[in-house]
Write a protein that binds this DNA or RNA. Structure first.
Lengths: 198, 198
DNA sequence: GTTGTGACCATATGCCAATATCGTCACTAG
DNA sequence: CTAGTGACGATATTGGCATATGGTCACAAC
């Protein structure tokens, strides 16, 4: 993990992350100081730096956690899917719903994710890679079952779909498109599904 | 036109726009003052406000001009197209090429466009509407000739395609995707064309 | 009427010192 | 060795003030 230091598994690391999540969520990344976090867990500021390279590395950890949660929202929605098309639709709707909820319920954490997207933090890359992997699984299954076409190279298909969904996957874009949920993403997902037709 | 005032057709208005384009391009929007523009055209600052509501209105005019140029880049590329699929492909490639050129050749103006996209300026709305109209024309022609499917409502199709192309149409997004030109847009355009197949 | 402006106000911006924050390091305690 | 810290230098950030800038208006010249 980028920006980490010292013992990988350590109670104090978890404490730091926990305190950071609470503080970032309440006061925002900018208004939270490393000293605040140190005070919250009862250690000195210097000790924090035994576990993280920088404040930004802590931000990355929180962002990664947040995006994992969003991704989990998509992943969980897949289960109910009756077909691969349905799974794909639910996957994206799940991610978008989780992102929108984050926006309305935890704006501060959303802003960190948006900033991470702007700055291309590793956590965002990882998030996209997870999404691509899940997408690939669905599409391969759909190809297997004859639900989807098989001519296009699988990686091109997956990359193209993710690029096409950026208006809703990328926190920077999503915030402009919130007012047209869920109709607009549905339109793009429909387009994607038509493109997958055999 | 939003933010305009006084005589619609007027030489001085053109002078203002011309001077603004030159100054914004060289020094940027922020570093250019209305007084600078006044001095450049040899009138007083107050006279500028006979033609524009605000400095931002001038920015909008320049942005509109810039986006019209980008759009023209796409529109011009259509001509060479042999089929409607080809026209669609060329249209987007033309827009993207013009945008990328703007980024590299006139970064200051590009930044204005990016800012306009972020703030949803009318010029950006207009730009998207022009794109949608052109797209609609191409798709209707393709439907007519049997090149494209006809079941999906035409407006849904057009909106979905534009949303899917946001990664390259929106200046905010494009700047992150410049390194993967022209492969990445080609992937999405391929996806779009597959979705249009009858 | 149209063309054009200097003087003006309110707010935004730049600047500079004081302060706060980030991040490191030598060091102590066990 | 691991756990932990106070004190420190470098770099952001803040607050207050002077200045610059955006924007208006009454008015002049034609």
């Amino acid at each position: 993990m980028a920006g980490r230091r010292g013992p990988t598994e350590h109670g104090v690391r978890d404490q730091i992350v926990e305190a950071a999540r609470a503080h970032f969520s309440r006061f925002g990344y900018g208004k939270t100081t490393v000293a605040d976090l140190a005070k919250a867990i009862g250690f000195s500021k210097a000790y924090i730096y035994k576990f993280f390279d920088s404040k930004q590395a802590i931000g990355q950890a929180i962002c990664a956690q947040t995006l994992e949660q969003v991704f989990a929202g998509g992943k969980a929605s897949i289960a109910e899917g009756k077909s691969e098309s349905d799974k794909l639709r639910r996957f994206f709707n799940g991610i978008i719903a989780a992102s929108a909820e984050l926006f309305f319920e935890d704006k501060m954490l959303y802003d960190i994710a948006a900033h991470a997207a702007e700055e291309r933090w590793p956590s965002v890359i990882a998030y996209m890679e997870c999404a691509e992997e899940t997408l690939k699984t669905i599409i391969l299954a759909g190809r297997e079952s004859g639900e989807f076409e098989r001519k296009t190279p699988i990686d091109e298909t997956c990359e193209a779909i993710l690029l096409a969904m950026q208006s809703f996957m990328n926190p920077l874009m999503l915030k402009h498109n919130l007012k047209d949920l869920p109709e607009d993403p549905a339109k793009v997902i429909n387009l994607v599904l038509r493109s997958l037709a055999p």
